[in-house]
Simulated assay, not measured.
Amino acid sequence: MHRGTATADPAPSAPATGEQASPSSSPSPSATAAAPQWTAAMDEVSVNGARGVAQYFLDLYPYVLTTGDTTEWDRLSHPECVYCADVRDTFGSKPAHGQLPSADWTLVRSVELDPGVYFSVEFKLVETDAANVATDFTVLVGVVRESDHWLIRAVQIDEVAAAGE
């Protein structure tokens, strides 16, 4: 995954209301990625809707890397999302070559920070490369609702230090 911490503004400091979800995982494609499908549940203005949008956006990543098609990525990217722009500028219209690492996403929690407006979704990512070396990451996604439309406001990816490091 394209790494880096990229947030334009910190999340609003409204009191957190929301839920902690039980972990679930979904592997992402590794060689030639198909575009993920938008579902009706993602249209819901709720923690569940924001969670679905965050997962959908992250599932777009291998599609953008293998195709260079950023149409849907751009539609969901907030103008101030530094990570979103970095991925678009790096991989848009010039797809990556070679084997992509496999990715196993597990939902850690979803929180509604500003009711109906700002949500934080946290995932654990285990990325395994072609040599079968696994690396763990924490991925935070800021999801906002603006003008009846979901946008990804920020993505922060931090590698989790292995035990003993």
Rank of each mutant, 00 (worst) to 15 (best):
S24A: 14
A16Q: 14
E80T: 13
S30D: 11
L65A: 10
V117K: 15
P95R: 12
A33L: 06
A96V: 07
P36W: 09
A163W: 05
T66C: 12
P36R: 06
H2G: 08
S30A: 12
P10A: 13
A54Q: 06
P10H: 11
S30I: 00
F123C: 07
T5N: 12
A11D: 13
A154I: 00
D114M: 05
S13I: 08
L151T: 10
P15A: 12
G18H: 06
A33E: 10
E122A: 13
P23V: 06
S22Q: 15
E165L: 01
S102I: 00
K94G: 10
Q99G: 03
L113M: 09
V126W: 00
G52Q: 05
P23K: 13
S147V: 02
G164K: 05
L151R: 15
S25H: 13
T39A: 11
Q99Y: 06
D114S: 14
G52V: 01
Y56W: 03
G4Y: 08
P12F: 02
A161H: 06
L65N: 07
Q20A: 11
L140D: 15
S22C: 11
L107C: 02
S24T: 14
D89C: 05
G52A: 02
E127Y: 00
F91P: 06
G4T: 09
E122W: 05
R75M: 10
P29F: 03
W38N: 04
I157Y: 01
R153Q: 14
F137L: 07
Y56Q: 07
V108C: 02
P29I: 00
D9P: 01
Y61E: 15
R145E: 12
P95H: 08
T71H: 07
L151Q: 14
T106L: 09
Y56L: 01
T90I: 03
Q156T: 14
Y61V: 07
T32V: 10
A162W: 00
D158W: 01
S28P: 03
E80H: 10
A154R: 11
P101V: 00
H2W: 02
D59A: 14
T106Q: 14
D59I: 02
V139Q: 06
G142T: 01
E165G: 11
A40H: 08
H78N: 15
T135V: 07
V53Y: 08
G116Y: 00
Y118K: 05
T7M: 12
T106D: 15
A134H: 04
F91R: 03
D158K: 07
E72G: 08
G164C: 10
G49F: 01
A162T: 13
G92R: 10
P95L: 01
V160G: 04
E80R: 13
T71C: 02
H97F: 02
T135H: 09
D136S: 15
E122N: 14
V141K: 03
S28T: 10
A163C: 02
L113P: 06
